[in-house]
């Protein structure tokens, strides 16, 4: 502690103590600041919920788009094909439309003919 007993005092001794106090302060401030920044960057419940909703919306949207773009069998036994394919089919063979209407009016005793619907029903 006491190094000033010599005839010639060590000047840097006081400055060194001073720097030591500054270092202590710097560490203290760094710890508190780090704690704040660490707590600040964590995402809360609200942000998580927003992310989940966003993902859900994207999922639904891609499913809806998919229904418009590819062909497949619906749950009620009918089929769906892309709308462009349906348009060109009807343009080439307009009787299909009449057939379609008939099958809509009465389901009939016969087995239902394959009916084209557009994807969204």
């Amino acid at each position: 502690m006491s190094d000033s007993n010599n005839s010639r005092p060590v000047i840097s001794g006081q400055v060194a103590s001073w720097l030591g106090v500054i270092a202590f302060l710097a560490v203290a401030i760094a710890v508190i600041t780090y704690a704040y920044l660490a707590f600040r960057s964590t995402d809360g419940v609200d942000a998580d919920r927003r992310l989940a909703q966003k993902a859900l919306r994207a999922d639904l949207e891609s499913k809806a788009k998919g229904k418009l773009a590819d062909s497949g069998r619906n749950t009620d036994g009918t089929y769906h094909i892309p709308i462009e394919a349906a348009i060109s089919l009807i343009a080439a063979k307009p009787e299909v439309l009449v057939q379609l209407r008939q099958s809509n009016v009465g389901p009939g005793a016969t087995a239902p003919a394959p009916v084209f619907t557009n994807g969204t029903k």
């Binding site: 502690m1 006491s2 000033s4 001794g13 006081q14 103590s17 001073w18 030591g20 106090v21 500054i22 302060l25």
Partner: peptide
Amino acid sequence: ALWPAVAFARRP
């Protein structure tokens, strides 16, 4: 303002 702390650390 830190010199009082220095004084305290180096008191005889």
